[in-house]
């Protein structure tokens, strides 16, 4: 679990009794953001009609996220495209950077994913109330439900709505942590089984690395698409 520990880098920054020091977590957030910006800068630098590889990847990620939003939340979600694009890229690059040996996985910390999920939850709720007023509460009362079941369903709906930030954050955090822990465990097997028995866990480790890269992408996608779905609930109220 040593790979998940947060350590202070440089001087201690203490603002009104709160420790806001620059840590290795902060460092890898900055690295991820810098890599995203570098990638997007190089990808949008040359305005070629026939794109080069980097430009093609940048444009593909643009159209990928744009399509994801328009498919799940429709055209009304267009103003939120930059946010969802940033979110997707940030989570994706944090996950991917975390796959490098000796690096730190920002998204494997519950506090990071929880803050993102809470922000999304609160923002979506505010957007819902701004767009629909108190009619937004009808999201808890699905239509076509027998009157007997209605109180129960409403309670379930409220609980499921309130548990959104928890499920969203825990999903990402747990996936990232579990993957890295697994890699660490198999890596430990390689060392402890030595040259004779270490080959089996080593091959597992290689396979798991591939799987983890897939999971890193998939979790970023899931995080973004769930945000889109929540946004869709807030924008297009039809239950």
């Amino acid at each position: 679990m040593q790979q998940f520990t947060v350590q202070r880098i440089g001087p201690e920054i203490n603002i009104v009794g709160v420790d806001l020091s620059f840590t290795n977590a902060s460092l890898f957030m900055v690295i991820s953001a810098a890599v995203i910006m570098l990638f997007l800068f190089l990808g949008s630098k040359e305005k070629k009609v026939i794109p080069n590889k980097l430009q093609l990847i940048a444009e593909m990620s643009y159209t990928f996220v744009a399509k994801m939003i328009s498919d799940t939340a429709g055209s009304k979600a267009r103003p939120y495209f930059p946010f969802i694009f940033s979110l997707f890229m940030f989570v994706l690059f944090c996950n991917m950077v975390g796959m490098l040996p000796y690096s730190f996985t920002v998204t494997s910390h519950i506090i990071v994913t929880l803050i993102m999920a809470l922000f999304i939850f609160i923002a979506v709720t505010i957007i819902g109330f701004i767009k629909h007023g108190f009619k937004y509460l009808s999201i808890f009362v699905p239509s076509g439900v027998p009157a007997v079941l209605l109180p129960l369903i409403t309670i379930i709906e409220i609980i499921s709505y309130l548990s959104r930030p928890v499920s969203l954050s825990v999903r990402l955090f747990a996936n990232m942590m579990a993957g890295h822990t697994m890699l660490k465990v198999f890596g430990g097997f390689v060392v402890s089984l030595g040259i004779l028995g270490g080959w089996l866990p080593l091959s597992f480790s290689v396979a798991l690395t591939g799987l983890e890269i897939l999971v890193a992408f998939l979790q970023a996608y899931v995080f973004a698409i769930l945000t889109c779905i929540y946004l869709n609930d807030a924008l297009n109220l039809h239950h």
């Binding site: 679990m1 998940f4 709160v18 420790d19 840590t23 900055v30």
Partner: peptide
Amino acid sequence: PQLDPTYWASQAFWLILVF
């Protein structure tokens, strides 16, 4: 280490800033 709250504020602060 995720449940150790020492650097939660720091992580939150830097996350919000960077993002």
